[in-house]
């Protein structure tokens, strides 16, 4: 999106002052209203669809497969694929989204969660497709939050069939069998445990200020960007600086990074709560 010179100056002036006035009336730590739904794909274990008011939309699905485990690495049991409509499979954004999500998921999912028996485990295939995004977007990194929300919801709504055979099959030659009653299926992330998939928050830097969930216009005037992970109720790795446009880039200061972490720390909890309420209110129709 190309802004006119006067528009750009006006936005910069509003966003870099001591009192930030965002064009869409949000506070610096406020998200755009999100529309989301869960478990809408009949043939996947968990699925979600998330939409932003600017028209960006992402669909995510989680499928589980029983595999024989040779190594005990979680990364081998996770396949993360991100697809962005209209982008090649080897496009920079597509490749880096996949690897960022995979890395952060591998850190948060303990091996015990996927392990079925001594010999077998679930292999998760997590696919996210960005089906639309604003036309004049200057950097795909701005939709990382959307993708991570979709993946979060899909994983949270993932249910796996109940194992009926024994878990100790080290000596016996036995293939695991499952109950065919889906009412007995177990959630991958049980409600009572603190364990949750990670979320990633994108922040744009304008002057001394940091803006959460930047809109298309704000991306255009952003001087730098950051994304910060949020897992097990606190902000943390991965933290990385990203360039949100190709025209004006400035350096980050340590204050920016500390600010970003504390902002994410303070809002992360309420975002999780809002997303969890969607998972709890969604009923699987299948």
């Amino acid at each position: 999106m190309v802004l006119s010179t006067t528009e750009r100056y006006y936005l910069l002036e509003c966003l870099s002052g001591s009192k930030v006035i965002r064009a869409d009336a949000r506070r610096v730590d406020q998200f755009r209203p999100v529309e989301a739904t869960c478990s809408f794909l009949p043939n996947s274990n968990g699925s979600s669809r998330v939409r932003l008011p600017d028209g960006s939309e992402c669909i995510a699905s989680v499928k589980a497969k029983v595999v024989k485990v040779e190594s005990s690495e979680v990364t081998d049991l996770l396949n993360v694929e991100v697809d962005i409509n209209g982008q090649r499979d080897d496009a920079e954004a597509v490749v880096s989204f996949s690897s960022i999500l995979k890395e952060s998921l591998a850190q948060c999912i303990p091996e015990s969660l996927l392990k079925l028996t001594e010999k077998y485990a679930f292999e998760l295939s997590i696919d996210a497709i960005v089906i639309s995004y604003p036309s004049g977007i200057s950097s795909f990194y701005s939709i990382l939050t959307l993708v991570s929300m979709a993946v979060y919801l899909a994983l949270k709504s993932t249910s796996l069939p109940l194992l009926t055979s024994t878990t100790e099959d080290a000596e016996v030659e036995e293939e695991p069998t499952f109950s065919d009653d889906w009412d007995l299926a177990k959630l991958l992330f049980p409600k009572d445990r603190l364990l949750a998939p990670p979320l990633l928050f994108v922040l744009a830097m304008v002057g001394p200020n940091l803006l959460l969930d930047p809109s298309v216009e704000e991306l255009e005037v952003a001087e730098n960007g950051l994304f910060v992970g949020f897992a097990s109720n606190k902000a943390g790795a991965p933290i990385r600086s990203i360039s949100l446009n190709s025209t004006n880039n400035k350096g980050l200061s340590t204050n920016h990074i500390l600010d970003a972490v504390s902002t994410v720390d303070s809002v992360g909890g309420s975002v999780l709560k809002a997303l969890n309420s969607i998972v709890e209110n969604s009923t699987s129709e299948f």
């Binding site: 998200f31 209203p33 999100v34 529309e35 809002v267 309420s270 975002v271 809002a274 997303l275």
Partner: peptide, 10 residues
């Protein structure tokens, strides 16, 4: 003051 509002579709 909520930071985010997540609603169902429609």
């Amino acid at each position: 003051m909520s930071v985010i509002s997540v609603t169902g579709f429609g």
